[in-house]
């Protein structure tokens, strides 16, 4: 490979403090998105079980819209659209809010799919024991559905980390934006993006390893 990596190394060393803080932003954003997305996903999933047909229709419409449109378009809508009606939000708020709605829709769909793997008599047994709807959700449905959906939820967490790179398109300075700046200044485009890719690969690998540990800890025979 004809790259000039030593030159890039010098550049990276010079910018190390700001790069580390940019990487911190990426990690922070990924963690926030993932946690919010899990909470939101559970909430949306709970609403899909509603007795009210109207609520179910609205929720399914919401899920379908966010699964059917690009996240970046929604982020642009918030970033470029809202100021025209006098609402100015910081890129960070837009990123967190946009990803929250998007990831919640995906996670809810994973949970809905997993819900189909539950045994109806098990839920009925809980009902027969005298548990309320809320208790059944908290004590039986949620713990089982989260385990059944774990692989999908885990790959969504990985997706979140990678997708967080798109917020640089709304001028939020996370890791990719930081590296982008270095590429512009040094003209070492290939080398910079190559290293960028490596760093994301590393982040993803950390998540993969963490998930394996979690899996070992939480797996129950007969529930996967």
């Amino acid at each position: 490979m004809g790259g000039n990596f030593p030159a890039l190394l010098v550049q990276l060393q010079a910018d190390l403090p700001s790069l580390i803080s940019a990487l911190g932003e990426t990690v922070l954003l990924s963690v926030i998105i993932t946690i919010n997305g899990l909470i939101g996903g559970l909430l949306v999933f709970y609403l899909t079980l509603s007795n009210s047909g109207v609520v179910r229709k609205i929720i399914n419409g919401y899920i379908s819209i966010f699964i059917g449109t690009p996240l970046i378009v929604f982020l642009f809508l918030l970033y470029y659209g809202l100021p025209t009606i006098g609402i100015r939000l910081s890129p960070f708020v837009i990123a967190v809010f946009g990803f929250f709605l998007n990831v919640s829709a995906y996670n809810a769909r994973f949970l809905v799919t997993a819900y189909k793997g539950l045994l109806p008599t098990e839920l009925e047994a809980a009902k027969a024991q005298g548990f309320s709807r809320g208790q059944i959700f908290r004590l039986v449905t949620a713990p089982q559905v989260l385990r059944l959906a774990a692989p999908a939820l885990a790959s969504q967490a990985i997706q979140n980390t990678k997708d967080s790179s798109i917020v640089f398109l709304i001028q939020y300075t996370e890791f990719f934006a930081g590296m982008q700046e270095i590429a512009m200044r040094s003209f070492l485009f290939f080398e910079t993006y190559f290293v960028t890719a490596l760093v994301y690969l590393l982040l993803v690998s950390v998540i993969v390893l963490a998930m394996r540990r979690l899996e070992r800890r939480f797996t129950i025979p007969g529930l996967s």
Partner: peptide, 14 residues
């Protein structure tokens, strides 16, 4: 493990 956008930039600009 690589974001699409990063790979795209690597290919197109790199």
């Amino acid at each position: 493990g690589i974001p699409v956008l990063v790979l795209l930039f690597m290919v197109f600009f790199g």
